[in-house]
Amino acid sequence: MAINNKEVTTTEEQAKVRQKTRQILKRFGRKQGNLVPILQKVQGKLGYLPREAMLEIAKFLSIPGIDVYSVITFYNQFRLNPPGKHSIRVCLGTACHMKGGYITLDAWKRRLGIDRGETTPDREFDLDSVACVGCCVMAPVTVVDAKPQGKVEPTKVDGLLLAFEIEREKKS
């Protein structure tokens, strides 16, 4: 679950990230205790925490870059990769685990070719796990674009992906 190397960021994009991050940093004091609120604000604006943003924040607070990376990877709420157009959240709560949620997760991983916490190179999908979404009757659950889908076994994974593909073809 490292930084997604497949992610293509141009120098132009990088400069934009730096500029946006600096804008946000203006509203904060330079004390280390501000790290988490800064990260939340930057992620709120950019959707994730790119490398350039991490470096800007580290410089601003006069701490090594690794400290920023350390905090980001510690908390689930922070993401290192850009969000995809569609979000896939596989439930690994107790009920879903018993119903084979990890097999569902493996199916998603295989079909999308990415690991947990990553985004597909075309930025269509991002994959992650959640711990219980509160509809255990439907286990194993996958939340697709904020909508919980029940009984998501590997065949249904294919079905859901097919639905997206058809939708995309219709549009183009």
């Binding site: 679950m1 490292a2 930084i3 690794i66 990376y69 990877t73």
Partner: peptide, 20 residues
Amino acid sequence: IGAIGFAYRGFQRVVTTFAG
């Protein structure tokens, strides 16, 4: 120097460099 530190949590915890 501060080239290395801890990242991730629990069983995934690892000593690593910035951005791994």
